[in-house]
Amino acid sequence: MKKIVKDKLPSLWEQLSSQATLFLPVEQDGVVNFAPWEEGDSVNLEALNTVVPPKNVVFPQTETYMRFKVENDKLHIEPFEQNGPYVLFGARPCDVAGITLLDKVFLQEPEDGLYSRRRREGTVISVACNEPDAACFCTSFELEPGMAPGADIMVWDMGDYLLWKAQSEKGEKLTGSVENLLQEAAEEEQKAAMELKERVTAKEAAAAQEMGWDPSGVKETLKDMFDSDIWEQFFRRCLGCGICTYICPTCHCFDIQDYSKDQEGGRFRCWDSCMFADFTLMGSGENPRPTRKERVRQRFMHKLCYYPSNFGLYACVGCGRCVRKCPVNLDIAQVIKEVGGVKSGSE
């Protein structure tokens, strides 16, 4: 393992951004989000979660993929892609896990070329969490706040320095390119980091347990709960906004739209939300999910029942963003708790 002293981080940003687009958690008006780093940006590595997860790096909110031109009756189409290597620095372990859940959707057959190219071109550096938030419950999904197996490089914040461990070929390569800024880590430093990691995991797991945020069994219970009254108690307070879906590291629904000036333009895909009224509205005017009740049910069933049925894992990483940001506290942790309660109640 290596380490980098924090004084050298500005040099690291400069060096990384000279070889690739460097995404870092950047603070603006009190909001921390991942953005391509520019000289003078206020980098915030302490903020636990960015408002928007770094899914927008691998799956941009808006992504033009085609240009077109209509001339008389002739149609010209050409692919449009913004290529280029990038480094994502500072993704938390839950967010890295979120990306691996997106992988399952986009990389399964037929493979999504736009997504897989972005995944290939990127190197992901994850920063371990030393102090999880009250809303964090990644341990409920067998994740560790101090470890991201899906990251190319894992970094632990040890105060004056970051402990640095390459975990993949891409990670090794990037490590080699900034070797001038790194030092070898002493054995006791590595040991301290691993001890910290274990402590943090145990602490968060205990807190999540106490809150009743235990999803085990929920996917089975939910199979018989499509018609349950439980959705009645959830949906009424839902505002029908898209906060939960857009800040969720695993939500991946998208729309496809054209834009044009005269007869020339482009086609893009963009995030969409199953919470929106027009998401399933058909041209005929029919809507199979006409009210917030069906939409709220769909969102939680998808995360906790349908996705697991297809991929064996819950589509939630316990990042706690919806717990923090839903304006009416209709979050997945509460749903897990309530649904879990139904199971034990019926036994």
Binding site: D255, I256, T280
Partner: peptide, 19 residues
């Protein structure tokens, strides 16, 4: 069945019906 569809390849999520 006819549902609203966008991508056609099982990714955009719009025509999701159960699993």
């Amino acid at each position: 069945l006819e549902l609203k569809m966008k991508c056609g390849v099982g990714k955009c999520g719009r025509c999701n019906l159960g699993d």
